[in-house]
Every structure is written in structure tokens, then in C-alpha cells.
Design a protein around this nucleic acid. Structure first.
Lengths: 138, 138
DNA sequence: TGAAATCACTACTATTTTAGTTGACTTTTT
DNA sequence: AAAAAGTCAACTAAAATAGTAGTGATTTCA
């Protein structure tokens, strides 16, 4: 029931970009500011890019910028981009996983719980975290 | 963000006992009915016993019986008995894990989300699952 | 009273997932 | 064309998960 470091790092990378501003931010800078190796950042940022949370700019004055408003980036979307679908059991995602063996009476329960968790995670946006961070610094 | 097989098996073992009735049920029978090896059941049942969900009876006519009413057994309690505390990040459980490095602005968010998930899991009882199972069989 | 039935405990192994590194490659800017 | 920057694939290490094996302890009842 944990969010992996991949998910948490993705979230922190986006926070870093949100706090930084408009100009492209170097991977090297993100790495230094978050205490993660540059190489690892370069791998973590791929799914964030593919999911449309960040935009990469190549070349000498390149780097990364946030591609969406923080208010439109939810924890659910980021975690799912980094780790795959959020679900308490696999069969909620992939019906073939359980449906054939038996008509499982617990399935509805897992589906409902998964929906509640996803909803709670969808309510949390990067803007909330930015606000918390700004408040803390003041 | 998954519940492990240990958690799910624990839940299924309790369902099995709840459906079975009053007389002690053998590990062998639980194992056969749930499709889990007898040896593995014997390990899984230890935390259920320690947490007071089941009571063991040794000797010739022994076995296991449910020690609580299904309505008093929540999914949260069972999963926590099997896997340890439910939390989206470790630092919610063990403050030493993060508190010293930095006054983390995300901490409140993780704590709040964890509380929501735990609450959702605490609402689900074994009685609900028993009802679903009985409905299905009818 | 002792043998059969039954649960209790510890140590070990295999598999899978998570976490992270390395290094070669492509694109863009100046 | 050279320097700066991102892209990608293959590999390794560590940790967590899942499951097995074997021995020990307790209880019942013929």
C-alpha cells in the first residue's frame, strides 16, 4: 500500500519545476535540488514527458518546463504515469486475472475501495503542494 | 499501492471461517477450500491468531474458529495484522524516517491521504463480504 | 498412557519488484 | 562543427514478496 520512490520522485520533480518558474530548468539543476542523480532524473522524467506534464526543450539553452498548470496536475495522474494504474488488487485493472477462475464475491469490494482511493488522490493537485511549500517558506 | 497476497489470503481465510460455522475448522480444510498449501496457511494464520481474529483449538477435534463477529472485523484491521501499518509513505508511520532531513511540505498531504485510505478500509467489514457471498450463492 | 491429531515456530529458498547505474546515441543551438 | 542537452536500452544491486520444509509442542481419546 505504498507509493514507490518513482511516484514520489516524479511528484517532487514537478514541484521543483512549479516552484522554479518559466525558464527551462536543467536536469542537472533538478537533480542537485532534489538530491537525486542526474542520470536517474533523466529516466524518471521520460514518463512525465510522455504523459504531458512537462515539455522538454533541447539544445544549449534547453531544459524542462511544466506543460500544465499545477492546478491541473493531480497526484493520481502523476502516480499512474510513474507506476501504472492505481488499484488495490490486480484484477480491478485486468479482469482476465481473476474473472475466469471463479465469480469472486470480493471483486465489487476491491473495485469500490480502489475507486475511493483514486478519488482521494485525484483531489490532490500540485497547486496544493506549491501552496504548502510557499506557506512553509514564509 | 497493492494489497499483498498475504493481506488478501488473510481476508479469505476469515471469510472461509465465517461461512463455515461454529465447529472448529481444520487448516487442511481451509487450505483445500482456498487453494493454498496447508503449510502456508499455517504461517498466515499466526498473525490472525495473534490479532485475535481467530482462536485455535489444539488436539484431535481441534482447528480454528472465528473469535469475533464478522461485523467487528474490518478490512483495515486484517490488512494491518498481515502486512503492518497501512500508509502511502513510510514517514507517516515512522517520523524519524523523514522529519530530520527537512521539514517536508508534502508530509501533511501524505498523512491526510493515508487517513482517507485507512478510513475507507475501516468501513469495510467481513460481514459485508459474507453478505455478498451469500447473495451470490442464492 | 501413549499414539494420533492438530496447531506453532524457525530457518531457508526462489521469484519478483524496486531502485539505481552505465554508456552509447540523437537532437538542437550557437 | 562543437558543445550542450535530452533519449534510450541494457545491466546490476538490493529489498520485498511469496512460498517451502522440517521440527516441536499440545491436546484428545481409545
Amino acid at each position: 500500500m505504498k507509493i514507490s520512490t518513482k511516484g514520489r520522485y516524479g511528484w517532487r520533480i514537478l514541484l521543483d519545476l512549479a516552484l522554479y518558474g518559466e525558464t527551462p530548468r536543467l536536469m542537472r539543476e533538478i537533480a542537485a535540488s532534489q538530491g537525486i542523480s542526474e542520470k536517474y532524473i533523466s529516466r524518471l522524467i521520460v514518463p512525465l514527458n510522455k504523459a504531458g506534464f512537462v515539455r522538454s526543450i533541447r539544445g544549449v539553452k534547453g531544459g524542462f518546463v511544466l506543460a500544465k498548470s499545477p492546478a491541473d496536475i493531480t497526484l493520481l495522474a502523476v502516480v499512474e504515469a510513474m507506476e501504472g494504474a492505481v488499484a488495490v488488487v490486480e484484477c480491478v485493472v485486468d479482469k482476465a486475472f481473476c474473472a475466469k477462475a471463479e465469480s469472486c464475491s470480493a471483486c465489487g469490494m476491491w473495485t469500490g475501495l480502489t475507486a475511493e482511493i483514486r478519488q482521494a488522490m485525484a483531489k490532490i493537485t500540485l497547486a496544493d503542494l506549491v501552496a504548502a511549500e510557499r506557506l512553509k517558506q514564509a
